[in-house]
Design a protein around this nucleic acid. Structure first.
Length: 890
RNA sequence: GGGGAUGUGGCGGAAUCGGUAGACGCAUCGGACUUAAAAUCCGAAGGCCUUGGCCGUCCGGGUUCGAGUCCCGGCAUCCCUACCA
């Protein structure tokens, strides 16, 4: 321990006169907090990022448009963590560059503010969701603004604003008018513990997402949206859109279109009763040796034989107690019971013993897909194979591999053969490949009236109602005679009534049902008494069309004006996480297509290009007992992380940032310590935007150090001038000598920055800036170079760029300056270090002119490795112009 | 079980068409400045062996003058999905 121990930590600053008052060491030092506050206030006051709309006096229709949208956040009580702004910073960089390139950039932000978490939070704290939501929005806005994101704040919206959800309701009425919204009795998740109905997405493995309480299915009358009517368009139009292939695949699979046939099997001894099945393999009809129907199938009770009736009923009861998920949990174990009934396979002639097939009830068949009954071809379907093996049922091979002999029909095959092949043991289409046999089989069945071509979808209609308070009320009135009508446009919005007690009811009925004054209404057209619908829309509703409202957020006559829609079109770039790959994006596309049919929009797809940012992870720390240690109680100063309190060495694990892992990092803290620009830069420097990567607090100071060096290029810390001399003028001069070296470095930097936008690899842009600053720190830079550098860095570190721009005496915001162009002439030096290889291995390096001919390159190379070629014969010489020379020598 | 993504130093990552692997940064080490420290600046550094080599981009094959990059086979990790007939 040295002398300084006497001073301790805090009195040390007394030695420095400027340390006493807490000001930076020099007036000229880089002081991010001062700069950032100054420019954020300036942007707000000048409305720098306001985007004029068609019709505004300052709107310039000659400029091309570019619409960059972030997936807006759900304003939770805990505020933003450093993962959220990752995509926002990326989209901000794109927006700022596009603006500098002369585009009218639409870059808005809002809040997905209706929904269950807010309501749940309100219930646990005893406060009204309106109040807590507004508070959370304040926090989010403050945090977003503090990051210097260039949103047009005049367009800010929240889905719970009356002026917004009025139009959500308006769109619902259009769905209603088109017959796309209907009510029906469907089983919904009920959680006894929470006394409430839960949405599918809130139930995981039969337990509530919050609290892990068991849930059961209950039938309830619900609003449904007929998204299945748009299934084909939702698949086909994926071709129009520039999205990651993985997301398109997920959507296609979610919709799950399949082509096949519905086939009727008469039931023996039941007169007209037929069992209708759906199959994608009508070509295997000759191999159908039994049937399985879902336990909920309406025919179950009727067809069961007397001997089997009790067993079948018991099985159906047991299945009802299980959820879909519980049923599939033990994926491989097939269960079922023989109903005792027999069906007639319509492909076999009368008198053929193979005509009669037994009917089983089994829960691997789902009532909710197809017809709830299947024909089973154990020879060519894995699941049927397992069932047949379990119950010792006959198996017939009716498809063979192309190069194998026809298997005998009376000997069960050794293994199941799903997929392609050549049909066999199938008299009416024997020898045809599977695809042709399918078509043939369907034609024959149709001719006989025993079946028909049919397309099925895995996608189900969208369960669109919640028995909850915090959502958009349905603009629907129920009349005394049982009919319902939608509320006319003039009577919109149907405002959510203010309720003291908004908790869900014990019996699962909607909280709005208790707002009796609100519920009792009159039908505007007839004046008849009516009751308001008391369900509310799910959280997804508001996010289905917010991107449209941003185009014209104040419009009071329509969701958006035709003029605004005409100009802005659709979203050019949509950035967000993969978690919305299916639901949100599918629902929004569905609504967009309805609005297209309605004439409200002229584009077929809402989001032209989609980009998914990667997930931000973080280190979490565990002690020897496996207990999690909060990240702010970990001492990282040494080589190994240690607990601050005990000094114990800790294990470091990488995990998603979450409260439960105690590894959440708040952007406010990072910005306060290192500055906003350093925070932005670090987030981009970590790696490609699409990659998942861990937040490493130890790396953040590096970005700040870079900004300090950048600043010092422009500002002399020891002087008092706002700018180093010679940097005010941006006059172009012919570069020579050292200036030429810097000019080349600058153009290489600008090129890298340009290229980094391809694929959102802003990490390489930051590296490019760092390399240039390293060069310029040694060799200096002139006014013209300084000018271009500041403009190029503006999208990345906008506050510092504005400050330097103003110190250079430029008029207006750098945000509206011109994006600096790369001058190709300076991209390459006259000479370069050429590697010389022998047998593909680098053996020497030699300086050659960039423009050297093949002969010159070869001669220079030969000179460099002549000693190493002694005693060897050069068999071949490969010369790659501008690259290298390789001698193949033996 | 199915689908997708990823795999490069101690760490995050770079490498446009197959052409010098490890840019840039972090951490580390050394030096300068300092009474000292911090900060800053300068420099070193993939691994192994005696200068010169050898080995190195998850593993095993292949194509090529030349492979992180292309082809075949395998392993690991992460994400999504779950009997859809």
């Amino acid at each position: 321990m040295g002398e300084d121990a006497r001073f301790g930590r805090s009195p040390r600053s007394l030695l420095h006169p400027w340390g006493v008052c807490g000001h930076p060491a020099h007036m000229n030092a880089y002081d991010p907090s001062a700069i950032e506050a100054k420019w954020q206030a300036h942007w707000a006051q000048e409305r720098t990022f306001r985007t004029p709309n068609p019709g505004d006096v300052d709107f310039d229709a000659s400029k091309p448009k570019y619409y960059v949208l972030d997936m807006f956040p759900y304003p939770s009580g805990s505020g933003l963590h450093v993962g959220h702004p990752m995509g926002y910073i990326g989209s901000d960089i794109v927006s700022r560059r596009k603006r500098m390139e002369g585009y009218n950039v639409l870059h808005p932000m809002g809040y997905d503010a209706f929904g269950l978490p807010a309501e749940q939070y309100a219930i646990t704290t005893g406060r009204h969701p309106e109040e807590t939501t507004r508070e959370n929005i304040e926090t989010y806005r403050r945090q977003l603004q503090s990051i210097g994101l260039s949103y047009d704040w005049d367009r800010e919206l929240a889905t719970c604003d009356v002026d917004y959800y009025r139009w959500t309701q308006w769109i619902f009425t259009r769905l209603y008018d088109r017959g796309l919204a209907y009510q029906t009795e469907v089983p919904v998740w009920w959680c006894e513990e929470l006394k409430t109905v839960l949405a599918n997405e809130e139930v995981i493995d039969g337990k509530s997402e919050r609290g892990g309480h068991p849930c059961v299915r209950r039938p309830l009358r619900q609003w449904m949206l007929k998204i299945t009517a748009y299934a084909d368009r939702l698949i086909d139009d994926l071709d129009l859109v520039d999205w990651p292939e993985s997301v398109k695949t997920m959507q296609r699979e979610w919709i799950g279109r399949s082509e096949g046939a519905e086939i009727d099997f008469q039931i023996e001894g039941h007169g007209g009763d037929a069992l209708r099945v759906y199959t994608t393999r009508p070509d295997t009809l000759y191999g159908a040796t039994f049937m399985v129907i879902a336990p909920e199938h309406p025919l179950v009770e009727r067809i069961a034989s007397d001997e089997q009736r009790e067993a079948v009923a018991a099985y159906a009861r047991a299945a009802a107690a299980k959820s879909d998920l519980q049923r599939s949990e033990l994926a491989k174990d097939k269960t079922g019971v023989d109903t005792g009934a027999c069906a007639i396979n319509p492909i076999y002639e009368e008198g053929d013993p193979r005509r009669r097939v037994p009917i089983f009830v089994g829960d691997y068949v789902l009532m909710s897909y197809g017809t709830g009954a299947i024909m089973c071809v154990p020879g060519h379907d894995e699941r049927d194979w397992e069932f047949a093996k379990t119950f010792d049922l006959p198996i017939v091979a009716v498809v063979r591999a192309e190069d194998s002999p026809v298997p005998p029909a009376d000997v069960p095959p050794a293994e199941c053969r799903a997929g392609e092949g050549i049909t066999c043991n199938s008299p009416l289409w024997d020898g045809l490949p599977v695809a042709e046999a399918k078509a043939r089989a369907i034609d024959l069945l149709e001719a006989r009236g025993a079946g028909t071509r049919k397309v099925n979808y895995r996608l189900r209609d969208w369960l669109f109602s919640r028995q909850r308070y915090w959502g958009e009320p349905f603009p629907v009135l129920h009349l005394e005679d049982g009919r319902h009508v939608r509320v006319p446009d003039e009577a919109l919005p149907v405002e959510l009534p203010d309720m003291e007690d908004f908790k869900p009811s014990e019996d699962g009925s909607a909280p709005l049902a208790r707002a009796t004054d609100w519920v009792h209404a009159t039908e505007p057209l007839s004046g008849a008494a009516a009751l308001r619908d008391t369900d509310t829309m799910p959280g997804w509703a508001g996010s289905c069309w917010y991107y449209l409202r941003f185009m014209d957020p104040q419009c009071s006559t329509a969701p958006l004006s035709p003029e605004a829609e005409d100009y802005w079109g659709n979203v050019d770039l949509y950035i967000g996480g993969t978690e919305h790959a299916v639901l949100h994006l599918l629902y929004a596309r569905f609504w967009h297509k309805v609005l297209f049919d309605e004439g409200v929009v002229k584009t077929k797809e809402p989001f032209q290009r989609l980009f998914n940012q990667g997930m931000l992870t973080a280190f979490a720390y565990k002690d020897s007992t496996g207990r999690l240690v909060s990240a702010d109680e970990v001492d990282l100063s040494g080589e190994k992380p240690r607990a601050m309190t005990s000094g114990e060495e800790l294990e470091e694990v990488i995990a998603k940032m979450s409260k439960s892992l105690k590894n959440v990092v708040n952007p406010d803290d990072v910005c306060a310590e290192y500055g906003v620009d350093a925070f932005r830069l670090y987030e981009m420097f970590m790696g490609p935007l699409s990659d998942s990567k861990p937040w490493n607090p130890r790396d953040v100071p590096g970005s700040r150090r870079f900004l300090d060096r950048f600043w010092r290029l422009f500002v002399d810390l020891d002087g008092s001038d706002p700018l180093r001399s010679g940097l005010e003028s941006n006059e172009e001069v012919e570069p020579a000598g050292e200036v030429l070296v810097v000019e080349r470095a600058l153009n290489q930097c600008l090129k890298r920055v340009d290229d980094s936008f391809q694929g959102f690899k802003f990490n390489t842009a930051v590296a490019g800036f760092m390399e240039f600053v390293n060069v310029a720190s040694k060799k200096g830079l002139n006014g013209s170079q300084a000018d271009r550098l500041v403009r190029a860095v503006a999208p990345f570190a906008p506050h510092m760029a504005e400050e330097l721009w103003s110190r250079m005496g430029r008029e207006g915001s750098v945000a509206h300056a011109e994006w600096p162009a790369v001058d190709e002439r300076y991209l390459e030096a006259d000479e370069y270090e050429m590697p010389v290889q022998i047998l593909g291995k680098v053996r020497a390096k030699v300086m050659v002119p960039r423009s050297a001919s093949r002969e010159q390159m070869e001669a220079a190379a030969l000179g460099a490795v002549s000693d190493k070629l002694e005693g060897k014969t050069v068999v071949k010489t490969i010369v790659v112009p501008g690259r290298l020379v390789n001698f193949v020598a033996k």
